[in-house]
Amino acid sequence: MFIKCILALFLFASLGQTAEKLKIGLVLDKGGKEDKSFNSAAYQGASLAEKELGIELKYVEATDVNSIENLHRQFAKKKFDLVIGIGFAQQDAVKKVAVQNPDTKFVIVDGEVSASNVRSLMFEEHQGSFLVGYLAAMKSKTKKVGYIGGMDIPLIRRFAVGFEAGVKHFDKSFTILENYIGITADSWNNPAKAKELALNQYQQGADIIFVAAGASNSGVFDAAEEKKKLVIGVDSNQNWMKPGFILTSMLKRVDQGVYATIKDLKEGKFTSGTVRYGLKDKGIDYAMDKYNEKLVTAADVKKLDAIKADIISGKIVVPDFYLMKKK
């Protein structure tokens, strides 16, 4: 009897070992795994899941827009359980491939696809932008702040509109300079151009710039360092990249969203539809750490947290470019 028990246990254990790991495919945007921003966050979330949930992770970087659909198709063909598409540019590809591969689950970040096997992760970027806009206004001495976006597209406008509203909420007399880097996908990888735009904004009197431009961000950080001005990073916590010059970073916790989705799948709780992350669930936030604690005082944090609470409770309504468009 005892031996039987042991045998049974043994069998059980070995069964557990041979049980197939979940296979997760991650399709990153053109910025690539190491953009220290949007894609880095996605990769961190997925690799954390790999470490903690024991899944099998494969990632690819889409070098151009035309390759995206193929990459998704490849993952689906190899019977991956979940394919994660990062970035608005992948929306159409996911829409198409998901319908053709009903057995595979898909996730799209920053885009919405309605299909029974697709979960869309949306982030309330305008709320976070409002918050850092308010902080920028508090900290500005020149009453002039700047915004630099990668490309003039709705997603990036959403940051701009939120930021502007935040600044104006603090003081209506502020001037906001607004620039965009380019018109092609190169915009996310053009630090030299970004730096040029930033130098121009600083020269025009802006003393704090909020930048949302993927891997181009580093150019703006360089400009801030050179001119001894301040800059606000985006997506990942970028405070460490130029300590003393980065006021804060607007966090878009793509890592959290990706991790949570993989976890849901593992626990059999995967649902389709749109999941929205905002200030409420810390999917959107601002970064405080040892690198910027000298720039943002405890009193500032207190004020910011009050604003944050007001946004969450609905007392402050942040204009959303997505909704403005539909009007």
Binding site: G32, G182, T184, D186, N189, N190, P191, A192, K193, K195, E196, A215, S216, S218, G219, D222
Partner: peptide
């Protein structure tokens, strides 16, 4: 013009 190589930076 910037401080590092980043992919496709020639644009």
């Amino acid at each position: 013009l910037s401080s590092a190589y980043s992919p496709l930076m020639t644009g």
